[in-house]
Design a protein around this nucleic acid. Structure first.
Lengths: 205, 205
DNA sequence: TTATAATATAATGAA
DNA sequence: TTCATTATATTATT
């Protein structure tokens, strides 16, 4: 028991991927109609806009993970229970990186490979970017197969894919967006090459 | 005249934006969108669906563009008429995308601003999609400042803004539409967060 | 380094 | 107009 990180993730509702900001404070209903006055009065009014990025997976209490860690070279050291508010635990794999103000902590032996995360990932996790999804080969294969036939799948197909591939529908959506962009890019590049060839051929004549 | 790129886009039928797949052939009007069918897992059925992926930007002949270009720093270089079968002129993107083995080609100095714009628009997208406008920081600042006071500016304010910011009034209109959508989204999301926090707080009590 | 997942947002079309 | 969806530019991860 003492040698194993205890990870207890709560099963909060799976947060939807959403973007945007949080509006805090209250806004005046006063309205001015000339731009000059708008700009001039700007400082006079105090709008308290606190912009906070919406990162549901950073919110505490949803996927809180508690685990036990060991400090020092051996497992006889006192262990600490560290609560991590995340769906991913950034402290894993801390072995390779010295974190500011931290003693070297060894977890690695207590993590599975999938649990191990890089320090960079921790940073991005902290910043609130969704960790990059690594699609499996079979997932990619299926996505590509569908894409070949239909590069604009509707919600029904996306949901079906999501279910079959055990992914969020959002990941499917984003994947198709990026895939379309990639196709267009390659098309653009081949067009460019064609045009360039025409161009240089004409020059040589 | 010789200093100006001649842009003559054919006026092919603007294809409608469509979703899904194009059915080619007359075999059957039956259309299955299930993944099994896409993957060919339903071979028991024997109607042959000739599925042609919907790739509007790959269709030739729709937005054929012929243009004259200049090579080098000055306009005394020989110019060439290059037919481009594309919704976009790949040379235009050489600024943003460095193509392998490309030569530096200068067009922009030979166009007036408006010529450049219309050219870009012509060439931009298979159905004439407007190239994405990149607002400057100062433009955004002013738009945001106005938005804070009035998120539904009338035509008069929009025109005034357009004039001051050297933008089309249309861009202003769209910007405010998108900005309102963003605000709504963020509001929805903060509501969601509040509800969620209430939920988890209640759980812990 | 490249490929690509993720993000942010301008543009579009339907209702 | 809103709304959902798209293309597109950019950032960041692997």
């Amino acid at each position: 028991m003492a040698n194993t990180p205890v990870c207890a993730a709560t099963t909060g509702p799976s947060p939807n991927m959403q973007k945007g900001i949080c509006l805090v404070g209250n806004k005046s209903s006063q309205c001015s109609f000339s731009i000059e006055s708008i700009l001039g009065l700007d400082k006079a009014r105090e709008y308290t806009l606190a912009l906070k990025p919406y990162r549901p997976w950073l919110e505490p209490g949803i996927n809180s993970v508690f685990f036990v860690c060991f400090v020092g070279e051996d497992a006889s050291n006192p262990c600490l229970h560290i609560p991590i508010l995340s769906y991913e635990n950034p402290f894993f794999h801390a072995v390779n990186y010295t974190m500011p103000g931290e003693r070297i902590v060894h977890y690695e032996k207590y993590c599975t490979a999938t649990e191990r995360l890089s320090y960079k990932r921790e940073v991005s996790w902290y910043r609130g970017r969704r960790p990059r999804t690594a699609f499996s080969r079979s997932q990619i294969e299926m996505l590509e197969t569908v894409f070949r036939v239909n590069s604009y799948p509707g919600i029904d197909i996306r949901e079906e894919l999501a279910h079959k591939l055990d992914l969020d529908e959002d990941r499917i959506q984003i994947w198709f967006q990026n895939r379309r962009a990639k196709l267009k890019r390659s098309h653009r590049e081949s067009q460019f090459l064609m045009a360039k060839n025409t161009f240089t051929t004409n020059l040589q004549e």
